[in-house]
Computed example of a mutant assay.
Amino acid sequence: MTEFTKRTTSPFRFDIVGSFLRPQQLKAARAKYQAGQLSRHELTKVEDSVIIDLIKKEEAAGLHAVTDGEFRRSWWHLDFIWGLHGIDQAAAKAGYGFHDETTRAETAKVSGKVSGEHHPFVNHFKFTRDHVSAGTQVKQTIPSPAQAFFEFLRPENILTVKEHYPSFDDFAADLVAAYRQVVADLYAAGCRTLQLDDCTWSTYADFAQHPEHIQTAGFDVQQLEKLERQSVELNNAVIDDQPADLVINTHDCRGNYHSTWAATGGYGPVADPLFTKEDVTAFYLEYDSDRAGGFEPLAAVPDDKYVVLGLVTSKNGQLEDRQAIIKRIHEAAQFHPLDKLCLSPQCGFASTEEGNVLTEDQQWAKIALIKDIANEVWG
């Protein structure tokens, strides 16, 4: 019988990406808050209550590392970016374009020198930390530095950077310093598992396989290689020289908004430099549909790094065929060692507060299936 390494730190064989469907109680409270019918303090009390309930459900499901479900956020990425000093919430000219929907039109603008002191996510982490059972780890998810930088490449946002910085290199340097400040504060608060959520790579892979999308997005082919190099450099500038006991992983998917998607194409075009040069412990990767391509690019992942296979979709409530998932895990093991593989949903269940189109019962059934399969494959 094959002996597999026992996982005591993230990633775990049975894992999650981060976000969960918002309970109706929270949605109603947020709507009242936005309408001026509820105070910030009253909304926070509701958030606290539903997060405590979620933590209990995560622990009951057997998860070793839990999150707050991203219940205090509207977006998986923008709320973090808005929490940095020198960056403000702003209306966008248009929402993000998905396959058959367009999101709310929100973005961020630079309003001064960027820094990371007293980020609200640090207190969010502390709350979750204080409500888990002994032995349960807390995973903090934030957008990658590359993802935050990419937000300011939107045409209307470029101007706000130029108003406050002589060059994008200077802006990038302050952004990295701000991130390192937040990471240091999270670490001081007890965070030992950090996940950098990053959709830039799926965008670049899409561009490489669909050149017509590059011009639509306002870029050119020559920029693509520079953007990929820049993304690795930005992420590694935050990852490198962190404490040895801080595990930093990354998640990459092709967009997740109200059960639809934004990009398509396999990881092949970005395997180098993403898999070969980014200094993370594990890659959480979307693999729930043909849009993700084959497992061949996993051969580029160094053997000392983990791959968390997102084979179970979070986009609908239909439960996957157990044996089909097990078969796909072993297919992936032809390109990366089985002992270095884990299993999770392909993304969160609610990357934005709208959430995906499935029920909470279906959400937890997916998680139970992942646990059951992981126990069979890895013991």
Rank of each mutant, 00 (worst) to 15 (best):
Q37P: 03
G97P: 00
V138M: 01
K93T: 09
A282K: 09
Q147I: 02
D53Q: 14
L274V: 06
F275N: 05
T67L: 09
L224Y: 01
T5M: 07
L196P: 05
A28C: 08
D206N: 12
L246Y: 05
Y204S: 07
A244L: 07
S144P: 15
E278M: 15
L338S: 00
C342W: 01
E212D: 12
Q362D: 08
V308N: 02
P297T: 15
Q34S: 08
E163H: 13
T281P: 00
R154S: 03
A92R: 03
E3W: 05
V238W: 06
K113A: 12
N235V: 13
R254A: 05
G348N: 14
K315S: 01
D220I: 08
V280W: 06
H336P: 15
A350V: 05
V377M: 02
E353Q: 10
D100K: 11
D321N: 14
L341F: 04
P211T: 10
Q222V: 13
R154Y: 02
A35W: 06
H251E: 09
I373F: 09
T276H: 09
V182T: 09
Y33F: 15
I367W: 01
W378K: 02
A188Q: 15
E163N: 12
M1V: 06
R322I: 00
V183A: 00
Y179I: 05
G348T: 11
P269R: 04
Y33M: 08
I158G: 09
H251L: 13
R13V: 07
Q195G: 08
H251C: 14
C191S: 01
N356W: 12
V176I: 06
I142C: 02
I248C: 06
E70C: 09
A134C: 01
F219K: 15
K109P: 05
V312K: 04
L63P: 04
K126E: 09
T216D: 14
V46C: 11
I87V: 15
